[in-house]
């Protein structure tokens, strides 16, 4: 455990899949020098194989007991990440013939390949968006896997960083991260990952992905700050849960799980069963997802009746600034 831990809560009921976060991150950190294929932040459609493809089957994380790492595999560029293709802007915009805009090379996969596909048959099809980034885990598998101690976790905020001077591109960390949120840069010969925008955080400015989020879906605060959204949503209301907690890394990006409307029966009548099956959500967020959804339904019902709900007010985020509390220790506002 570090002295403090910065945490992010992403409300999946508010994420609209616009990818503003993805682009905010990409234009800030990964649009050059061998990083084109990597998305430190991306938003995938669930259920789906995600990015990199089948990352949930790629291994990594801790064995039960937490003293041994599970083996993991390295994703491939074209098949699992997707090549950073150029598009036919020249032909589409400046030549006659009405060519539609297309990648100039055949693509097999990409960071948002299965957008809005989801699963299920009409009228009961369903999907939701899952934004993903490095979880700046409390027990980072990546850190433990590195034989060179090139990965560290900062005492003051728990941000997990790869020292680019020490890294020699061995990629044990890529295999070990169960979220596949470390990327090997073949040009630099080193591994790179989300830095939780630490230069911004040090100035009290939220991460680009969180600050730019048009859905007001992302809250950021230190987990020990009891007035912050992270502590309140994770510990007080227990409606924000880590993704795949079974890997044992103790992620610090938390998700408010998605509610869904009722399925219809053959006669076209609502059944009362949510479209996103509970067991699917349990497979992502663990058994704590059920009480979390209960709490959300209960609080929504209050609001619908015109009653007050502190939780809903916090999740609605009437004031953008209320979503972020980034004061460093000793500078905290009441």
């Amino acid at each position: 455990m570090t002295q403090r831990q910065l945490a992010m809560v992403i409300d999946l009921n508010k994420c609209i899949g616009c990818q503003t976060c993805t682009l905010a991150c990409k234009s800030q950190w990964t649009d050059r020098n061998g990083r084109d294929f990597m998305y430190w932040n991306h938003v995938e459609t669930k259920p789906g194989k995600g990015y990199p493809r089948d990352w949930e089957q790629a291994g990594g994380g801790w064995e039960a007991g937490g003293d041994k790492l599970k083996p993991g595999r390295l994703p491939r560029l074209a098949e699992d990440y997707g090549i950073p293709a150029d598009f036919s802007f020249e032909a589409t915009l400046f030549q006659e013939g009405g060519e539609p805009l297309r990648p100039t090379e055949a693509m097999q996969w990409g960071p948002n390949w299965e957008e809005d596909q989801g699963t299920g048959e009409f009228p009961n099809g369903h999907f939701f968006y899952l934004p993903r980034l490095c979880n700046h885990c409390t027990q980072p598998a990546c850190l433990a896997a590195c034989p060179r101690q090139a990965i560290s976790k900062r005492e003051e905020d728990g941000i997990v960083l790869i020292d680019q001077e020490r890294c020699r591109g061995y990629r044990y960390c890529v295999a070990a991260c169960p979220y596949k949120k470390i990327y090997f840069n073949p040009l630099a010969g080193r591994s790179e990952k989300c830095i939780f925008c630490y230069p911004r955080i040090e100035k009290g400015i939220p991460q680009a992905c969180a600050y730019q989020c048009v859905g007001r879906a992302r809250h950021v605060s230190y987990l020990d700050d009891k007035a912050g959204a992270a502590w309140r949503l994770v510990h007080e209301w227990k409606v924000a849960l880590p993704l795949h907690p079974e890997h044992g890394t103790q992620p610090n990006v938390y998700y408010v799980p998605p509610l869904s409307t009722s399925t219809f029966d053959a006669a076209g009548k609502p059944t009362g069963t949510p479209r996103i099956p509970d067991d699917y959500l349990v497979s992502l967020f663990g058994p704590a997802v059920q009480p979390a959804l209960e709490t959300l339904r209960r609080e929504i019902a209050k609001k619908e009746k015109g009653e007050a709900s502190e939780l809903m007010d916090m999740l609605i985020a009437y004031k953008h600034g209320d979503m972020f509390r980034l004061d460093r220790l000793g500078e905290q506002k009441p």
Binding site: F37, R73, L74, P75, R76, L77, D80, Y81, G169, Y183, F184, P186, G189
Partner: peptide, 11 residues
């Protein structure tokens, strides 16, 4: 070494 691995790619 039957095959020259002279490129570093992601995997």
């Amino acid at each position: 070494d039957p095959v020259a691995d002279d490129r570093k790619t992601q995997h």
